[in-house]
């Protein structure tokens, strides 16, 4: 078992953790926000995620072998979000009752049609199974690649690629069903 860092090592770790936190605060917050659907709980979840990350940072750094730690951070947030839903006994779909609120954060405030489309898409995302929804949030909100998403979800890259493909296909079906048959335009 490795000994706890002391003195200069601790200062170095704290400095490196500060760098990590500043680099990925938006990522963790974005993920939390799309998972829980409101700012208040997203802030709490983000704080918990970074506190937990701080407690295990030394070990995570040693085990990462120089690989980026973003998947590890997002995985912490992911697990906390799962606990959040379990503790509140709320179905994930109900979180995007805030879809209309979430869509208002976008720069389409002047475009009613754009906001409706955003709400439709977010509602569609909320109807997906948990793993497909989570993968889409990581891909599109956080711009994570397959390898990172695989690390965060503890899957192989191949399985992650299939997961995302199926998620998009399923969302496509949902949106087409909501829009109804469309004539030639």
């Amino acid at each position: 078992m490795a000994t706890a860092p002391t003195g200069k090592d601790k200062l170095r770790l704290d400095s490196e953790f500060s760098d990590l936190y500043r680099a990925h605060l938006r990522d963790v917050y974005s993920y939390a926000y799309y998972r829980v659907g409101n700012h208040h709980d997203a802030e709490d979840l983000t704080e918990q995620a970074f506190l937990q990350a701080y407690r295990h940072f030394d070990r995570a750094q040693r085990e990462s072998n120089g690989r980026p730690l973003r998947p590890w951070l997002i995985r912490i947030a992911h697990n906390l979000a799962a606990n959040y839903h379990r503790d509140r006994a709320r179905k994930p779909q109900s979180q995007l009752e805030d879809a209309a609120i979430v869509s208002a954060t976008h720069d389409t405030e002047d475009l009613v049609e754009g906001r409706e489309e955003l709400t439709q898409v977010l509602n569609g995302v909320s109807q997906l199974p948990d793993d497909r929804r989570e993968a889409l949030i990581m891909r599109f909100a956080l711009d994570m690649d397959n390898r990172e998403i695989a690390g965060a979800l503890d899957r192989s890259e191949g399985a992650t690629k299939v997961l995302i493909h199926r998620a998009i296909r399923q969302l496509e079906t949902i949106l087409e069903e909501e829009r109804g048959p469309v004539g030639d335009e």
């Binding site: 974005s30 799309y34 997203a42 802030e43 754009g114 898409v121 889409l136 909100a141 496509e172």
Partner: peptide, 29 residues
Amino acid sequence: SDLGMGDVEQLLRNALVPVEPPERLSERL
């Protein structure tokens, strides 16, 4: 008119944008 994968991906890019944390969260953290 059907949505294609590319269309859906573009819709997702437009919908799932990064969310800036409030200033108070940075200070709190």
